[in-house]
Structure formats: C-alpha cells, structure tokens
Design a protein around this nucleic acid. Structure first.
Lengths: 142, 142
DNA sequence: GTGTCTGCAAACGATTTGCAAATTA
DNA sequence: TAATTTGCAAATCGTTTGCAGACAC
C-alpha cells in the first residue's frame, strides 16, 4: 500500500498544505493529516490513534485531538457528524454526501452535490455550511 | 402559553399516540412526549430535564433517557444529529431540514423536502433515512 | 402478586484541560 | 533561551447500566 516514491510525494504535499496554513509540519501532525488524506474512511479519533500508535509509540491521543482541532479550524479537514457519541474526520473538504451502513457501520462517500432550492431559507439567514447524511444498508450487508 | 382547554386536548392526543405504540402513558412519559410536541425547539436531554424538573421534582434524567429511547424506537420521535457531544430530539417526524445558527445555537426547522436525485447511489444501496443539516447565522444574529 | 416503571448511584466513553517535560527555532 | 509542541493524568460531560424500591394491572 505504501511505497517509497508515493510516500515521498505525499509527504511533500502534506508539508506544503500544512505550511500554507501556518501549521508547523511536526512528525505527529504530518502523520495525522497524512493518515486522513491516504485513508478516506472518515475515521474517528480512536481509529486514527490506533493506526498511528504502532508507528509512533509515543503518540498520545491528546495530540491527535489537538492536531485535528487545528486542521478543522484552518479548513484542511472537515468533521462528519453522522452519529452521536463520536466525531469522524474527513480530509476531503469537497461538498459531498455521506452514506452510513447501519449494519456494518461503514461510511461511504457519495460524490454528488445536493443543490438546495432557491428561497429555501427566509430573508436574513446566511448559510455557511451544509451536510447531508443518508443511512441505510450497503451492498455487502444486503 | 398553556391554558386548560388546549392542555386537555393535548393530553388526550398524547395518551392516544403513546397507547397506539403500546407505551403506557405514565406521568413521566406524557410529560416528556408532551414537552417535545409543545416545544419544537429540538431540545437536548438536559433541556427537557431542566424544563420538567420543576413540575415533576422526582423526575430523573435516567427516566428522560429511557423515555426518549422508547419514543425514538417506536417512531414517535426522531433524533437530530446536528452537533457532536449531544443529541437533540424532535417530535415532528416529517421529512424536514434543520438550520443551526452558529452564533446563538438555535436550531430552526426548514419545512422543505430535499428529494435526492435518481441514481444517487450505486446498485445495492438501500436508503432508510436521510437528514440534511445547514449551518450559518440567523436573522437575529446578523 | 407479578411484571413494569422509576430513579439513584456508579460506570463508561469521548473529549477537554492543566501542566510539566521535551522539542524546535 | 524563548516559544512552541507534546503527552500524561485528571477532570468534564453526555449517556448507559445495575439494581432496588415504587407502582400498576
């Protein structure tokens, strides 16, 4: 899955992206952002932590939390609020939908934009973000 | 806000609705469901508890949780997952959108249905529920 | 009287905070 | 060296669970 060449490419892109946002590309930050970019599986904090912990044994969950907060604040990552109890994170900040299988729990991307109708909201409401979630069962679970 | 006549009407409707779902209309359950019906403000568990506690001093949060779980399970109430950390509840189970003001925190109903495009999902995906959330600022906060 | 319902207290799990040690410019 | 970053431990907060007493049929 990982080979030297692609990893090198990604590392550079990741450093660039972080630097653009004035976030120092520390080992931990690159690992967290890199994981999100390479694994578009909408992971939870724990999933990220469990995945990176073997590579970076000293990594703490606090740092994962801190890093994700920074990434979200600067707009590099979006949160996916598709269930209560735990947040999921997505390095793909394009406007797409999410489908969550209620049997296996997998969150799928649906790359289609829902255009909200004109005059959806009364005068005076300003939209800054929208998110559509769909629940159901996926092909593997039917 | 509450007068005897309307309350009586509501009480009867509430008893009927609960009974239809084979939920015994206890004092606590009627209070929780009644509160949701009369106050379409998408309250959190704590909001419901704080509102009802003065009227029913022995009420416990556990009972609010238990009751809400039953109401959701039987389809009388839907959960609104518009933020992490706390669930909100809505006795209006019609298919409508929610708008959350990021300044004052109020959740508004938007009574317009978003029809998902045909062939949105690949073969094999079965949709059971969808929810669209919009964030922004409301007229009071602009 | 038997089964359901309620509510206290404790447990739990995700997230946040305080702070000191480690790291980097 | 000074400022930033990391990570441990404790605190916090929403939610769930265990269980015993209260209540309803």
């Amino acid at each position: 899955m990982k080979n030297g060449y692609y990893m090198l490419m990604n590392q550079n892109t990741i450093i660039e992206k972080l630097s653009e946002k004035n976030i120092r590309p520390s080992l931990q930050r690159m690992a967290v952002y890199g994981f999100l970019v390479e694994n578009p599986i909408h992971p939870t904090v724990d999933t990220i932590y469990q995945a990176l912990h073997p590579e970076i044994p000293t990594l703490s969950k606090t740092t994962v939390y801190n890093t994700l907060k920074q990434l979200v604040d600067c707009g590099l990552v979006q949160t996916v609020t598709i269930e209560d109890g735990e947040l999921r994170y997505d390095a793909d900040i394009s406007n797409h939908l999410h489908f969550k299988c209620i049997k296996c729990g997998t969150v799928f991307d649906v790359f289609k934009e829902i255009t909200l109708p004109e005059n959806l909201l009364p005068e005076g409401f300003v939209v800054s973000k929208k998110q559509t979630n769909i629940w159901g069962t996926c092909p593997n679970c039917n």
